[in-house]
Simulated scan of single mutants.
Amino acid sequence: MKATYDLPCNIAQTLNIIGDRWTLLVVHEILIGNTTFNEIKNNLEGISSNLLSDRLKYLESCGLIATSLYSHHPPRYQYTLTESGRDLEDVFNAIILWGRSHLEKCYKKLIHQKCNHEVNITYYCPHCKENVDDVSVAEVDI
């Protein structure tokens, strides 16, 4: 994939990796346990085989997924998320929460498994060992 954004911005640089059509949905399928090409394709109605193949190769080259051969004839692969890919679960959760608040038709919600009530995102400072509500974005010294 070609980098779309040449901006000194974490959001722009992240979108260069995961911002293409279908990419996040492919990662999400692997996250929820659909780990073969056919499982992913069958769950993403409308994606072509060529596009899915391209997305999987790209995600592997970016280090978000790993592949392992599970059948030699014909060659078939299983896809798993790397640590970097698994870290996108927080992004998916944030999108689910945003959708719960802002979409006219919402399909999912995040719940606490113990009590079955909805949850919110909380920011935590490991230095102070406390939850915080006064977060801000700061430049990184390079």
Rank of each mutant, 00 (worst) to 15 (best):
S84E: 11
Y77A: 03
N131F: 12
E118R: 06
I96G: 02
D87L: 09
N116C: 06
L110T: 02
S101F: 05
Y123P: 01
P8L: 11
N131H: 12
M1Q: 11
V27I: 09
D54A: 11
V27M: 05
A66M: 10
E104G: 14
E139P: 06
E89F: 00
L51A: 13
T23D: 03
F92Y: 10
H28M: 02
S53R: 13
L44S: 01
N131L: 10
G33D: 03
S61H: 02
I142M: 14
V135Q: 12
G85D: 03
I111A: 03
V119N: 03
G19D: 08
N116G: 05
L88V: 01
S136F: 08
E29I: 00
R21Q: 15
L31A: 04
Y123A: 10
V140C: 15
R100M: 09
R55W: 00
K108V: 03
D6I: 05
R55Y: 03
C128L: 12
Q13W: 04
K109L: 07
T14D: 11
N10L: 12
W22Y: 14
E83P: 00
N43R: 09
G85I: 00
K105T: 07
I111C: 05
N42A: 07
Q113K: 14
N38C: 02
T14Y: 09
N116S: 10
L81H: 02
D133K: 12
I11D: 10
E39T: 03
N93G: 05
T36K: 06
D141L: 11
I18H: 06
T36Y: 02
Y124C: 05
D134Y: 02
D133R: 13
G46H: 05
H102D: 08
Q78N: 10
I32L: 01
H73W: 11
L88R: 03
I32C: 02
T35W: 04
S48M: 05
L15E: 14
A94N: 09
V119S: 04
S71T: 14
L81V: 00
E39L: 07
Q113M: 10
G19N: 07
T36A: 06
E139I: 09
M1R: 08
V91I: 14
Y5V: 07
N43E: 12
S136R: 15
L69R: 15
V27F: 00
V137Y: 11
L24R: 07
E60R: 05
N38P: 00
S68I: 07
C106T: 14
C128S: 13
W98I: 09
N120A: 09
